[in-house]
């Protein structure tokens, strides 16, 4: 079946959003392979339900919420299937940024730092601090109370600041 112009436009918008959708998915899955699979499934679902998109607000918020719901389902399935979900951040590698790191390595370590933040913190931080969503919008996307958004956000900021402080101390 040939897509209509409207469906093509919807797909075009989704493709344009892919970098942001992948970034959001990474805050949930914390590994690229799962994030890409998750984005793919979310986009497929968004396309099949595109008639439900009313064009109000941000399209990415609508797809983000879909992505988050799919991930919650996936985690539930994994827990049933293997008795485990994602790897807890405390079990992952050391989070410190090396003081001696060159620019490329530093950027890589920053990326790693973000990826090793607990899921709840990094998603909230991304939505509010980076993408400028309101607390209400972030709460709706993530399915959590506004109070939780606020506390997670401040915790994320303090953790990130602690990392950079350690780096500065090592350099001096």
């Amino acid at each position: 079946m040939r897509p209509t112009a409207e469906a093509s436009e919807f797909r075009r918008e989704l493709v344009g959003l892919l970098p942001k959708l992948r970034r959001f998915a990474m805050t949930l899955t914390r590994n690229a392979s799962d994030a890409d699979d998750l984005v793919q499934e979310a986009c497929e679902r968004a396309i099949t339900r595109s008639h439900l998109w009313n064009g109000e607000g941000r399209l990415e918020s609508w797809v983000y919420a879909m992505t988050r719901n799919l991930w919650v389902d996936e985690i539930r399935k994994r827990k049933v299937r293997t008795g485990s979900g994602t790897v807890d951040f405390s079990e992952q590698d050391d989070l410190h940024i090396e003081a001696s790191a060159d620019k490329a390595v530093y950027a890589k370590q920053l990326h790693k730092l973000i990826m090793t933040m607990p899921e709840g913190l990094s998603s909230v931080f991304l939505l509010v601090n980076v993408e400028g969503h309101s607390y209400r919008e972030a709460a709706d996307v993530l399915g959590i109370p506004i109070g939780t958004v606020m506390s997670r956000l401040s915790t994320a900021r303090i953790r990130l600041a602690a990392m950079i402080s350690e780096q500065t101390e090592r350099r001096t």
């Binding site: 992948r22 973000i114 980076v130 990392m163």
Partner: peptide, 9 residues
């Protein structure tokens, strides 16, 4: 710091 890391992504 976090904004910079996310923008790079």
């Amino acid at each position: 710091l976090g904004r910079k890391a996310f923008e790079d992504m």
